[in-house]
Write a protein that binds this DNA or RNA. Structure first.
Lengths: 250, 250
DNA sequence: GTCATCTGATTGTCTGACAATTTGAAACGA
DNA sequence: TCGTTTCAAATTGTCAGACAATCAGATGAC
């Protein structure tokens, strides 16, 4: 999650691409609008055309712009919705870890539910493997973090929706480093690993039984406890004030 | 969702970046490994170094590689998990619309739940605006698709989790074009728009009441009906066979 | 053995050129 | 006048070569 990567002086293309994305996000350039030409941008920012092209290549990769040879570069219709990132500058400001974990929480709950409804015998076998390996890890004192990852991926695979599967992997990857404290020596000695494993088995049992509601609840428990193990406060109910319903009639 | 964009001959940098991403995905290059140098790649693919640089710029944008001036380009530790896309080639094969909708379904359900738990008075007012405008649209025969979008975004905003909000927007954007058939003349005349609006009001009521469970159910009904309106079959329960639980003891 | 220095390799940037394509206007014919 | 063809300018795509900035390993001094 956190990284203390050394700071590097930003590259020109990097800086420029941020500026251009800012133009689009702030609405200075509307969808369908044409960008200044590469030469104009090069002059304006006092860089070479190669740098401009690299910056625009990045915008293309992100789905912000589309270019047509001979015509120009245009803000795409759905600018900004080509890809989803977790480390946008605007977003990563406050409570980032909590927010990321919460999104993962939401998706994995639904994922467990779907898995319980659709799992096949093969899916169950795929779930048993990392489960057994984690049990071995508990007994022998080996690392189980990788199998923890694998178990969550196997649950996602049991939904038979490759998109859901990939998204769970995507979110889970953000926490792969954070799973280690559960499975290292310290985590095993104070029972964290054992607790996690019990929660895993509850998830498996619910999915094997085809009980979607139980699977959801087991996943909820596991993620809630996992948040605790990571020191992330999910603070569910802020205690909303009672506000009457509909002010407008249909 | 669907687009009949005219096919353009692929650019060299585009082609090359796909090849390089393939190298990483297939494990031919493991995380931490060093890429061939730009010159080597240029020679190997018979393109100029500018093309190679543009292709690598794309990989950098996607979080597949990190480059260090003077050292080289390296496969990043968590290659492929820098961004989440819906239109990966590998994924978009079969049942794409259904899979995308299902992911949206999962997230918006959790979103409605969180919104009910956390909404403030200001959130409720932000929800009322698009709701009222959709009612106006129903009476006056104007377009309400944009307000439909806005309502879903307002629900997401009520979670007070900017990441969840952005992801709901991201998924919703894939269907913004698909919302029109509900709100055009035909959709209004046969009651589709009216049905959708009733579902919206149920969601609002549950969120206003702070009833998470009811909000979830209302959102579930809305999305399920929305899928029908779009002609997407969600086929929930495939009728899993009863398989006994745990084969391995804790 | 440790440290500073040097050297080659590699990415970052610049410049200029040409190819491929698009766009709009001009020229032309009906 | 309208429609078509042709052409030329503009723009992105690609290439080649050069230099700057930085890094990693080798070299050498102490």
């Amino acid at each position: 999650m956190l990284s203390d990567a050394i700071v590097r002086p930003p590259r020109l293309a990097e800086t420029l691409s941020r500026s251009l994305i800012g133009w689009v996000r702030e609405g200075r350039l509307a969808p369908g609008d044409q960008f200044p030409t590469e030469k104009q941008l090069a002059d304006q920012f006092a860089v070479s055309r190669a740098v401009v092209r690299e910056a625009i290549a990045r915008l293309k990769a992100d789905g912000y712009v589309e270019t047509r040879q001979g015509a120009g570069a245009f803000v795409s219709r759905q600018a900004g919705y080509g890809s989803f990132r977790l480390h946008e500058d605007a977003v990563s400001a406050t409570c980032h870890a909590r927010n990321v974990f919460e999104l993962r929480y939401v998706v994995e709950l639904g994922c467990a539910e779907l898995a319980a409804k659709r799992r096949t015998a093969a899916d169950l076998m795929a779930l048993q493997l990392p489960l057994a390996r984690m049990n071995d890890a508990l007994r022998s004192g080996l690392q189980g973090a990788a199998d923890d990852d694998a178990f969550h991926r196997a649950v996602a695979a049991a939904t038979h929706n490759p998109l859901v599967e990939r998204f769970v992997e995507f979110m889970g990857a953000q926490f792969s480093a954070s799973r280690v404290p559960t499975w290292n020596e310290h985590g095993r000695s104070n029972g964290r690993a054992c607790d996690a494993q019990r929660e895993h088995e509850a998830i498996y049992a619910a999915i094997a039984a085809g009980d979607a509601q139980a699977a959801r609840e087991a996943a909820e428990r596991h993620l809630r406890e996992g948040a605790k193990r990571l020191g992330i406060a999910l603070e569910e109910s802020a205690g909303v004030s009672p506000i009457p319903a509909q002010p407008e009639q249909g």
